[in-house]
Nucleic acid binder design. Structure first.
Lengths: 237, 237
DNA sequence: CGGGCTATTGAACTCTATCAAGCGTTGTGG
DNA sequence: CCACAACGCTTGATAGAGTTCAATAGCCCG
């Protein structure tokens, strides 16, 4: 009962379900399954049969893809109210990536049938999904362009700024990423190695731009990073 | 009248409109605008206000994105029956890329209002769009992974194989890409420079694996390229 | 015929991956 | 509660894939 109310209230904020009235929301909610996960748990694994589609209610998780040769890239971090693992989209019926919680999380899940029913009954959800997917596509394309045309340092700066913007906690001394991010994570996010990331962050720290303990990163001066992310001047100033 | 019939017949083959009955197809068709383009004409330009969504009936075009510093990447080649420039998706209401015809082409276009009406009247179209978009997303992600983890030669091999598979004309001596592709195009497609592509193709030609005049490429032996591409992974065309 | 494209190829350079070693913290099991 | 392994991070050295710079040559078309 309590859970019920909490889930429903959260659902109302999910972009995917914008425009549904309370009764519809309830119907959607009743078709869902509620799951709790600890930190560092796998929600689904790349290659597994894709039965469930998810919305994250609380917590944080990362979606990563790995290539046969052992390399791995980080597709995205997922925050509250975002959808992930949208089954409908995978024609192969396999998850193309692995989703792992970064902090303890709560998710709602719909199985394939429930999802199709939902899309059929509530065309509005399909339209929302189209829009969200379009954004996702634009995002990936933009990161592809970045990877193809920008140097590593700039890519790392951008990645950090994106993280800070989306999930930064600001205080007097700067903005801190609200969840654990390792050098390796940043490397997977920008298509480089943890060594290179480490060197870059060390440099920035020596300049006082950032501050960083293990898996914690705090940006003192976003504007400097922004200039690294955009400018085109030599860097040993 | 004649055009009308041709357009309608073509429309029936467009994946986006699968599942519509003839009357519905007609309605969709009647909301469209028919446009002819010569070779090397721009259909829409990156940054322009996005008023039209398109389906390609005949011809071929490329969709390219350029970064502020002058670099450019090739998102995709569009062939007959494919949709492109889907306005709905661009929240910014700007085209994120430039579409240029590669051969003389015929397109159908819907303006924003017509598109929304279509999606509302025919939920099936929205579902189709979701699926197509999902494929597109998977494709981009797969290419992102490639760019982040594979060497240039392998990426070029994959790109060439994809082109050959999707639009190759086979004869006794191999498969020829059916439309003009320059070294620069291949470079933009794989995130490298025309110089590197040129060197690679020269090497392959000396090995007798391909044959190539200006903007024409013919693959003699796809299996060799496939082994370069180390095909333990699907090409995701 | 000249001026654009398109492509080829050499040479120098450099960014970044790779290899290698070591350090401090965390946390876990005895 | 201590010891030791595991993890995350740093930093130096080295090498190489691929970019950049530069020069040339063929082809197509007006």
């Amino acid at each position: 009962m309590h859970v019920d109310m909490e889930g429903l209230r959260s659902l109302a904020k999910v972009p995917l379900f914008q425009g549904l009235d309370p009764d519809q929301l309830r119907a959607v909610y009743e078709g869902s399954t509620y799951k709790k996960k600890g930190a560092n748990e796998v929600v689904f694994r790349q290659g597994q049969e894709a039965r469930w589609s998810y919305v994250l209610l609380r917590g944080r998780l990362k979606v990563a893809q790995s290539s046969p040769d052992g390399h791995q890239i980080l597709n995205r971090y997922v925050g509250p109210e975002e959808m992930f693992g949208c089954v409908l989209l995978y024609r192969s019926h396999r998850y193309p990536a692995t989703a792992t919680t970064v902090s303890p999380s709560v998710v709602l899940a719909w199985d394939r049938d429930a999802l199709y029913r939902m899309l059929e009954c509530f065309p509005r959800v399909a339209l929302n999904a189209l829009e969200l997917l379009g954004e996702e596509l634009a995002m990936v394309r933009s990161r592809y362009l970045e990877l193809a045309t920008e140097r590593v340092e700039r890519r790392v700066a951008r990645a950090l700024l994106r993280l800070a913007e989306k999930s930064g906690k600001a205080d007097r001394h700067g903005v801190e990423i609200a969840f654990p991010v390792s050098r390796q994570d940043l490397a997977d996010l920008t298509g480089t190695t943890l060594h290179t990331v480490s060197r870059i962050l060390s440099g920035w720290r020596q300049q006082g731009w950032i501050e960083s303990a293990r898996r914690r990163i705090k940006v003192h001066d976003p504007s400097v990073l922004r200039s690294i992310a955009e400018d085109d001047r030599p860097l040993h100033t």
